[in-house]
Simulated assay, not measured.
Amino acid sequence: MILGIGTDLCNIDRIAGVLERFGDRFRNRVFTEDELARAARRANEAATLAKRWAAKEACSKALGTGLAMGIAWRDMAVSNLGSGQPQMHLSGWAAERMAAMTPPGHSAVVHVTLTDDHPWAQAFVVIAAVPLAAAS
């Protein structure tokens, strides 16, 4: 069963401007070390970070809170499987919120997809509850 859906569209040039203006202050406030390391290896750091920004916004919407209710940016992190498929990891208040949303006897699964086509980066997040017997 679907517990939440979120989407976000982010302007890559806007993120590039924020990176120019605030540099590491912005990077360290919003992104995890792993996210920053991945972005540093990419040809277009701003596009990589814009997709992750969009994923965090989309995830906060799927959690039903937005970013105004206590979720920290770094409570949501995007990594990639070896195949390139993105994964969302929740910690802190975001993980607590997801646990509170999850019905008894279920496990929550976060699905995320990212795309970019300059100047836009986009993310969709779906949080689903899977019966515990089916989760294993």
Score class of each variant (00 low, 15 high):
residue 15 I to P: 12
residue 97 R to P: 01
residue 83 S to M: 07
residue 78 V to Q: 07
residue 104 P to G: 09
residue 94 A to V: 03
residue 51 K to N: 14
residue 37 A to H: 09
residue 24 D to F: 05
residue 70 G to D: 03
residue 13 D to K: 10
residue 25 R to D: 07
residue 10 C to M: 14
residue 23 G to L: 03
residue 62 A to V: 12
residue 35 E to L: 10
residue 27 R to G: 06
residue 69 M to F: 09
residue 51 K to P: 00
residue 30 V to L: 06
residue 84 G to H: 02
residue 12 I to H: 05
residue 68 A to V: 11
residue 103 P to W: 02
residue 16 A to Y: 05
residue 28 N to Y: 10
residue 122 Q to N: 10
residue 24 D to K: 12
residue 37 A to L: 13
residue 109 V to N: 11
residue 18 V to D: 04
residue 96 E to F: 00
residue 61 K to N: 07
residue 81 L to Y: 08
residue 31 F to P: 01
residue 112 V to H: 04
residue 84 G to P: 07
residue 37 A to N: 10
residue 26 F to A: 04
residue 86 P to R: 03
residue 45 E to N: 00
residue 37 A to R: 15
residue 46 A to M: 04
residue 46 A to W: 03
residue 102 T to G: 06
residue 72 A to H: 12
residue 54 A to K: 01
residue 58 A to S: 13
residue 26 F to Y: 14
residue 59 C to K: 05
residue 55 A to T: 06
residue 95 A to D: 12
residue 99 A to K: 11
residue 117 D to F: 00
residue 115 T to Y: 00
residue 60 S to R: 05
residue 53 W to F: 15
residue 63 L to V: 10
residue 18 V to G: 05
residue 11 N to V: 09
residue 86 P to S: 04
residue 116 D to E: 14
residue 102 T to C: 11
residue 21 R to P: 11
residue 62 A to K: 07
residue 37 A to K: 13
residue 67 L to C: 01
residue 109 V to P: 03
residue 74 R to E: 02
residue 33 E to R: 14
residue 20 E to Q: 15
residue 93 W to Y: 13
residue 57 E to Y: 07
residue 44 N to T: 06
residue 60 S to K: 05
residue 69 M to W: 00
residue 38 R to T: 07
residue 71 I to T: 11
residue 79 S to V: 14
residue 49 L to I: 06
residue 111 H to T: 13
residue 110 V to L: 13
residue 94 A to K: 08
residue 118 H to V: 03
residue 62 A to W: 06
residue 12 I to M: 09
residue 116 D to V: 12
residue 86 P to M: 07
residue 23 G to M: 03
residue 104 P to K: 13
residue 48 T to R: 14
residue 55 A to R: 04
residue 18 V to T: 15
residue 84 G to V: 02
residue 92 G to L: 08
residue 49 L to T: 05
residue 121 A to Q: 06
residue 40 A to G: 09
residue 51 K to E: 15
residue 106 H to M: 13
residue 20 E to I: 11
residue 102 T to R: 08
residue 111 H to A: 11
residue 100 A to K: 11
residue 107 S to H: 14
residue 28 N to I: 02
residue 31 F to Q: 02
residue 105 G to N: 13
residue 94 A to W: 08
residue 113 T to L: 10
residue 23 G to E: 15
residue 64 G to L: 08
residue 35 E to T: 04
residue 98 M to G: 06
residue 10 C to I: 12
residue 45 E to D: 03
residue 69 M to R: 12
residue 41 R to L: 13
residue 29 R to M: 05
residue 106 H to E: 10
residue 67 L to R: 02
residue 117 D to Y: 00
residue 88 M to G: 07
residue 106 H to G: 10
residue 71 I to P: 01
residue 36 L to T: 08
residue 39 A to Q: 09
residue 34 D to T: 15
residue 59 C to E: 10
residue 25 R to L: 12
residue 38 R to M: 06
residue 39 A to W: 09
residue 116 D to I: 11
residue 118 H to I: 00
residue 96 E to D: 13
residue 61 K to L: 11
residue 88 M to F: 02
residue 57 E to P: 06
residue 102 T to V: 04
residue 104 P to F: 05
residue 32 T to F: 01
residue 48 T to I: 00
residue 62 A to G: 10
residue 111 H to F: 15
residue 41 R to I: 03
residue 21 R to Y: 10
residue 107 S to R: 15
residue 27 R to C: 14
residue 53 W to V: 01
